[in-house]
Amino acid sequence: MAASSFEWPWEYNFPPFFTLQPNLDTREKQLQSWCSLILSYQKHIKSHTLDVVEMQTSSLFYNKSIERKLSLESIYLILDRLEKKGHIEWLDKSKKQCYLMWRTPQEWGNTIYKWAKEAGLVNTVCTFYELTDGDDTAGQEFHGLEPDLLVKALKVLESQGKAEIIEMDESRGVKFF
């Protein structure tokens, strides 16, 4: 559905893009482009999970107009790279499905922390609801963020000593430092 309106980059119509390049310099650029493309595409179709077998035949990895398909081996190579960067968490050991975050928890954490500082919320407590659904955050990118991802982002901040997650009666909140 939404895939049709996605604006494909020039690489997508360049046949060598679908062949893993043996030259390492070339491969580096190729893989970087693939990483960006996957994240953009996932964001475009608003998907947070990725099923490898299913995606193999999706237009992301299979360009029908030039009849080129990315091999499974190459797909895993790219996903591994995304995992190392923190964009992916595998949901099963056999690596069939993964949780895909087009922005990493670290990046979300930074965005949220920056906002909190600017809004003068340091040393005050905000509920999770306030962050993702409150009026104050209406214009923010993390408005409407998935609860799971929000927790991951805040946990990163917690580990850096920038915030603390607080359990309250019915909901959870966070205190920024």
């Binding site: 020039w10 690489e11 046949p15 030259n23 960006s36 994240l39 953009s40």
Partner: peptide, 21 residues
């Protein structure tokens, strides 16, 4: 088949465009 190496010659690779996600 061999193509000109646009990965190295072009400067508008997808990851270089600076899109924000």
């Amino acid at each position: 088949r061999f193509y000109p190496n646009q990965f190295l010659t072009r400067k508008d690779l997808y990851f270089q465009l600076g899109r924000t996600l």
